[in-house]
Computed example of a mutant assay.
Amino acid sequence: MKDPMTDIKKSLDATVFKNPQFTAKNKNAVFQKIHKPKKIYVLPSLVGGLLITVLASAGIYFASERLGSESPIASEPTNLTPADIPPINGQGGTQTAPVYAAKNKNELSMLDAETAYEMCVNALTDYYKAIWNGTDIDLDQYIGNENLKEYMQTKVESEYKRYGTLDGKVKQLDIGDWEVKFSDDEMGGYLYLKVPVAIQKHHGGGYGEPTEFFIRNVDGKLAIVDWYTGGKDTYDYLRRGYQQKIDDPDIWNDSEWVKKFKSGTGLFDFEQKVYDRFKLNRDEKELRGLDPISIAKLYVYASYHQDFETVYGLYTDREDHILWSKEEDEEIPLAHRGTPEQILQTFKNIEKGSFVQTGEYEGYIEFYPNGDHEEKSGFSMIKNEDGIWQVAFLPIQ
């Protein structure tokens, strides 16, 4: 009996495979579909119908490859099909923004659990693509709190600076067993989701992180009102505090909490601890391991609080860069140092800046005090002989 695969291969070679844009990768994927062990081809009469099916599958696959289509959402919430994420250079986020509508526009319940899970997986997929592959992320389609959205935008930008230049593009996400719980309150209730994700790289390797979400019904649509990724040395772990319990769905409505992340002098938990220790002994070893932006934030914080001894202690100790002594610094009139309000305006948005290293031990933080990318400022830094970044005298350029 003639093998029906022979006819199929000839037909494919004469049609789809002739297209020069149909790559070896595409061809291999089609053959994998043909040779799945669940498919058993035994009757010649099936060849015609099978050929049509395979050609249609090939066409759909090829179209999806060219459009960059990616769907990380599983039909069953406990068994997510891994989503292939191509190694994209440049921008290109989600093409069509889905709407995550609540089952009942006026309330939230466990009936919304699967849709909430779907939204969280999409958000995680876009997030890891953004920080590793450099694609856009539309936070508006996921987040229902402006303060959280601003924090997440800063988080994405910061993590892209950390990971985006590495040769480690994300290939797919694998979702483990996730948890969901509904709690009722005076605001209509909220869902808590814990979603463990394993990030797989194109060149092998990867890592895992658990992420916790709070979801509310906002005008009939599901929206994330808190998003925390745990694990040692994660952005949230360092910025929000390693002992924080994720138990308040309204934390981003707390003005005192938000102030920590919106103010240029607002130190993160670990930075505050370093500042408190450094203030006691002015020992530069307390600063070891801090990046230039954290050092600059300590300087701004000390200046804002008129802690001038700490301000001077943060200046460079390289002898050829010292402009005046500590004794001379103590003689500077208060009127010449600037008011707290002036300090805030001068260094506004420095925590969102980018560090540019210009030499073996020199560099500056580029930032935009007005946030409009028109008036740019530079904050000069100098690394001392022990490898610790310090503030240059007269740091503003």
Rank of each mutant, 00 (worst) to 15 (best):
P4K: 01
T6I: 15
I8Y: 00
S11C: 12
L12E: 07
F22Q: 00
K25L: 11
A29F: 01
I34A: 01
P44S: 09
P44I: 06
T53I: 12
V54I: 13
Y61A: 04
R66M: 13
R66W: 07
G68A: 05
E76D: 13
N79S: 15
N79L: 14
T81Q: 12
P82T: 04
I88F: 06
G92I: 01
T96I: 14
V99P: 04
A102C: 05
M110T: 15
L111R: 10
A116L: 05
Y117L: 12
T125M: 04
D126C: 08
Y127R: 03
Y127A: 04
A130V: 06
I131S: 00
W132R: 12
D138V: 04
D140R: 03
L148H: 02
S158P: 01
T165G: 14
I175N: 08
V180Q: 09
M187F: 15
G204E: 04
Y207A: 08
E212L: 00
I215V: 12
K221V: 05
G230R: 02
Y237H: 14
R239I: 15
Q244V: 13
Q244I: 12
K262P: 01
E271M: 11
D276Q: 05
L287W: 07
G289F: 06
P292V: 02
Y299R: 03
Y304G: 01
Y312D: 02
L314E: 03
E319W: 08
I322E: 08
E328C: 09
G338C: 06
P340M: 01
E341T: 13
T346V: 13
F347I: 04
S354V: 07
Q357S: 09
T358K: 04
E362Q: 12
E366R: 12
E366Q: 11
K376G: 05
K376S: 13
F379T: 05
I382M: 02
G387L: 00
G387H: 06
I388M: 03
A392L: 09
Q397L: 13
